[in-house]
Design a protein around this nucleic acid. Sequence first.
DNA 1: CGAATAGTTGAAAACAATCAAACCCCGTGG
DNA 2: CCACGGGGTTTGATTGTTTTCAACTATTCG
Lengths: 242, 242
Amino acid sequence: MVTNCTHCPLRKLDIFESLTADSISFLQRFKSGELKVDAGTPLLMEGSNSPQLFTALKGMGVRYKLLPNGRRQVVNFVLPGDFVGLQAGVMGEMKHSVEATTPMVLCVFDRSELWTLFKTQPERAFDLTWAAAMEEHFLGEALTSIGQMSAMERIAWGLVRFHGRCENLGLIDGTKCPFPYRQQDLADALGLSLVHTNKTLMKLRDRQILSINDGILQIMDIEEAKTVALLPIDLPGRRPLI
Amino acid sequence: MVTNCTHCPLRKLDIFESLTADSISFLQRFKSGELKVDAGTPLLMEGSNSPQLFTALKGMGVRYKLLPNGRRQVVNFVLPGDFVGLQAGVMGEMKHSVEATTPMVLCVFDRSELWTLFKTQPERAFDLTWAAAMEEHFLGEALTSIGQMSAMERIAWGLVRFHGRCENLGLIDGTKCPFPYRQQDLADALGLSLVHTNKTLMKLRDRQILSINDGILQIMDIEEAKTVALLPIDLPGRRPLI
DNA sequence: CGAATAGTTGAAAACAATCAAACCCCGTGG
DNA sequence: CCACGGGGTTTGATTGTTTTCAACTATTCG
């Protein structure tokens, strides 16, 4: 049973721009199906030339790169509304891998139709460029965070940001939001060792700023957390959904 | 005296895809002028909504972000052929600053014409998306480098990559290429302190792998340098030029 | 119960940042 | 001609953060 784009639950959220009926019907034709995967399923592999592109509908995942020496860099977390596979779409192959962290549901698009989109739907083409530029922006911030901030600052930054993204998606309950990742994932995202990540999280918990427990991230003192994060968290107020 | 797109010296390089006469004439109309700037001139400021977009023709620059605490992250080096200002074009404001490191010459485009490009030149729109995805790819690699590699590995990675970009642009003379940046710029790019960057460069020089002198980067032992860099350097073989 | 996974903790070692000063090159002006 | 100053580079000593290593706990699952 495939979700109809017209009744897409994501598109109802304030954060996503609304589209004309015509545009939605194009996307509906662009959409070739829906994919349900279990937690832990690899979606795209670095170097692969996937014939399929995705938009995450439900669940969460990770983008990551593996190094020859076995280390791993988590490039970003994948949340509902995120477009996945754009690199394969425009550059011919993925430059990082993507895997589901929780069970996920994704819209599937046909890569071969991407060119049709550029030719006939310039607004959608623009949206895709926007998405790529947004990802570029985020990676620039992450680079700045990892390159210039201390462990505590990085962790506060990463978690405040994640919390903000959840808020935009209506996933917040009071001060809490889901955080289905392991400490190792957070460490790999922020360029820290697992041990040091753990100890720093303890400090943040002791200082009553934030805590992670049972897959739930709670930010008790959001103001203090933002102060520790140093960088202002810059999330788009309204954005396209493809 | 403005360079005519038809005779653009950059486009003659093998690395850049060739275009039909029609496409070039569109770009010629898109191009609103040329900008010559001295070394040190700021081109775009973070947060600014520039009415102008650029393609670097000659010279080199830096993209960087400043932190509230005064630290600086160099996000990337700007070389000839690089498109500058895409974020302002699609997101309304720049997320980093750009400044000329050497004297530069840049093609100037009118931001207001960007939408015309998307509507009437889907191939060019695709190229822009490609450029954004490429930048995303690079930032992912940089993140991996800074997050997971030691100082020596990072420096080798950064300089081998820079050397490779120069090679693609025909800026190589034997084992040497221009490197007009200060050690502080390199340090800010790789998330290292100036002192540690300096000491690590000394070690690489002592080991006869590479050296920087008088604005010239020489890689004496490219194989060894690539080995130290850990990550394979992935540069596009052929790419669009806008 | 045993095995596997994730989280927690302490001690030691390694790495990189900071501090402070010297050095070098080069252009300026007395 | 040489003293002076500025920007960038180099160096040594010290401090401090982060990693690594190793072990132990808690929880889940077959």
